[in-house]
Design a protein around this nucleic acid. Structure first.
Lengths: 220, 220
DNA sequence: TAATAAAGTTAGACTAATCTAACAAATAAT
DNA sequence: ATTATTTGTTAGATTAGTCTAACTTTATTA
């Protein structure tokens, strides 16, 4: 079993490598800065995590997660995002308020608890910020995150979900014929305003960039 | 803000004084034993809690909670019992499984969280074990816990709740005419088996001690 | 009431996580 | 390529919570 501090370092390394940086390795100062501790403190913890085979670390070198470390980091991120979803959907918090509380809840130790929570929330794929939630095996379904704005020419997609569920938004996309499971294809990007020409229902329609980002799709 | 260890000591002293013992003071060994730590460890913490004005403690003497300490202890107990209720009612845990998880959840810091949870659970008065849940001000409504078995001669009560909700149990008490809001009065205790003669609906009926403990009442 | 037992405290040590200050290595810049 | 800057490490100290071992106080009992 790992301490809360250890879990926070693993999570930090995960975010820095896979979400904020382009490289697969992160520096000690980087980690220290992210966690608001001094570099000396981070050095000590990196040694400890290397000892536990959770990270790759060499003196004066950059660090990276081992497979085991990555798996643990994803477990914590899963917990964090499921709790955030719970706080917003069930307890009515705004998504700006939930982060701090989820930072505490993510360290509760009980696999059964988190699996039951997942079920209670109906196995959500994304949290209230739109971030993907890893499943119990630590697998992230990146497919489920691409939106109409990410479509590439020459591929066919289908609409799977929307990111906003206000009545007004749903009415609009319904009027445009953009329904779940409909097939959709990119024809052209209008340089002028980044709006898209889309083929749907055998006709070409124009979708604003704003709307395009809110409609999730999957390649078929 | 207090540490998790401090909170656990306050809770331990509360339980030992108000729920397990008859006196208002508890010994150091008693506390240490309850928390599975050595007496020396407890001594150190007792000094610290005295310093923070959360307990009354004198060298070689017994300890007790100050008003502030008691208030904090009740806050933690409130959180513990609300989380237990959540785990059982919303996530489908059995009541034997929830204690360990609630021991962790009770230390999450956020008043807003616990008040929202309380609302989400519809302001429950007791947890799944039948223990009373203190309200946000630390007040425990002991009235709501007395059962038919606690009735005194010469007072009039009304039925407010039941502690078991199996179909069979509800059918039985319905057949006996014991419904919510009905007025009820004690006539006699049968020494033979501790069963009670009760006046209800203008007739005298016999209720076994077992059933009597499961029907909650309130004096009117 | 004096001896014994039980309860409680003190002193010194350990671990985890943090810090500051001094130092060392790696990278960038002239 | 030598210097300057940035990055990272080491050593020693601190705080919280715990331990063991030795000691003191209070309570019990013969």
């Amino acid at each position: 079993m790992n301490t809360i501090a250890e879990e926070n370092y693993l999570k930090a390394i995960y975010h820095l490598t896979y979400e904020l940086e382009t490289t697969d390795f992160v520096g000690t100062n980087n980690i220290a800065n992210y966690l608001s501790v001094k570099p000396a403190t981070a050095t000590d913890m990196l040694k400890k995590l290397k000892e536990k085979s959770l990270i790759n670390y060499e003196k004066y070198g950059k660090s990276s997660l081992t497979n085991e470390g990555k798996k643990l980091a994803l477990e914590i991120i899963r917990k964090h995002r499921l709790w955030e979803t719970f706080l917003c959907e069930k307890l009515g918090f705004n998504w700006e308020e939930v982060h701090e509380i989820a930072e505490q809840l993510e360290h509760i130790k009980s696999n059964k608890l988190i699996d039951r929570l997942d079920k209670f929330l109906n196995y959500p794929k994304t949290d209230p910020h739109g971030e993907l939630i890893p499943n119990a095996e630590g697998y992230i379904d990146y497919q489920s995150k691409i939106s109409v704005a990410d479509m590439k020419l020459g591929f066919i997609y289908k609409i799977t979900a929307v990111k906003e569920d206000s009545y007004e938004f749903l009415k609009l996309i319904n009027n445009m014929g953009l329904n779940i499971n409909k097939q959709i294809e990119l024809k052209e990007v209008n340089i002028y305003d980044n709006s898209l020409q889309i083929k749907i229902n055998n006709q070409s329609i124009n979708i604003s960039s704003h709307i395009a980002h809110k409609i999730l799709i999957e390649q078929i």
